[in-house]
């Protein structure tokens, strides 16, 4: 039983990261119906930027770990958000009126481009975060050990997701985003500036992805330029699992995917872990064709 709970927390920690990245996929998808395959590489960009700022500015040293990291997160978020908006302008906007899959291919091109930009700037070697930023303490609850960094990951992701949820549900801008997601043309007729909504979505989504990158850097301590592919695919899976275009769905999907992976590894096989996760996904989609929380929308494909 102890092992089961330990595996559960292992899975939830991984799932939190998936969920944070999945939010970016799902927001962009909700409004543009576009699978932004470059999202994973924006996440990588966040991880690398965080590393550069951390080592060059020495923020945590000057301002203390908490305040320093907060400022760092804001900087990374801002920069990655800007990159995301730029990407939208350069690679996706010209394709907005064309077949949906054309934009997907442009996104794949952008992904290759971003990944190799990072490689050319930072080199192909693995980069390592400084290890002394956060104290290495672990909480012991009934034989289940939870390191402090993991709690930080939990708390930060839950806070960000909660804030985003409130923003989408309670503010005017959030309402505009939801309206644009349901029907762009109608939203435009209602006086909503859809271009502005898309811009906001491309600021928030990549921004969250960037923070996820920073968290991964802090938590695991190691970043490399290809990491976006692995996390991107998993997060995209999570978004679909929860019902793509649906924000609580991305959170639920991410957490569930993380837990399936951990339990699959624990009780079936480590080597087959990803296959098990995909199998569960397929079974869920056969039973619920639009994901766990996905709404049943009229087929427009």
């Amino acid at each position: 039983m102890e092992e089961f709970f330990q595996q559960l927390t292992n899975g939830l920690a991984v799932g939190c990261i998936y969920a944070l990245i999945a939010l970016g996929y799902t927001m962009v998808y909700g409004v543009l119906k576009l699978i932004n395959f470059a999202h994973g590489d924006l996440f990588t960009l966040g991880a690398y930027l965080g590393l550069t700022l951390l080592t060059s500015l020495g923020l945590s040293g000057r301002l203390g770990p908490l305040l320093g990291l907060l400022l760092l997160a804001v900087l990374v978020m801002g920069f990655v958000a800007l990159t995301g908006a730029l990407l939208e302008r350069a690679a996706y906007r010209p394709l907005r009126q064309s077949p949906r899959l054309s934009a997907v291919v442009s996104a794949l091109g952008a992904s290759i481009f971003l990944q190799n930009t990072i490689m050319l700037i930072y080199g192909a070697r693995i980069h390592v975060y400084p290890q002394d930023i956060l104290p290495k303490v672990a909480l012991e609850i009934g034989g289940v050990s939870i390191p402090l960094v993991r709690i930080l990951v939990f708390v930060v992701s839950l806070l960000l997701m909660g804030a985003l949820f409130l923003f989408i549900q309670r503010t005017r801008l959030g309402t505009a985003i939801r309206a644009a997601a349901i029907d762009q043309a109608a939203a435009r007729l209602m006086g909503i500036n859809v271009d502005q909504v898309i811009l906001i979505v491309f600021l928030i989504g990549p921004g969250l992805g960037g923070v996820a990158g920073l968290l991964v850097g802090l938590y695991y301590g190691q970043v490399n330029f290809t990491m976006g592919w692995v996390y991107g695919l998993k997060a995209f899976t999570a978004a679909i699992l929860g019902g793509i275009g649906n924000i609580p769905g991305a959170m639920v999907g991410g957490l569930i995917l993380g837990v399936i992976e951990a339990l699959g590894a624990a009780y079936i096989s480590v080597a087959w872990k990803d296959a098990i996760a995909f199998l569960v996904l397929i079974v869920i989609l056969i039973v619920r064709p639009t994901g766990i929380l996905g709404e049943r929308v009229a087929d427009k494909v």
């Binding site: 291919v105 442009s106 992904s111 481009f113 930009t117």
Partner: peptide, 9 residues
Amino acid sequence: MWFFGLAMM
């Protein structure tokens, strides 16, 4: 591959 991605876009 950088040029490849660029050319694709």
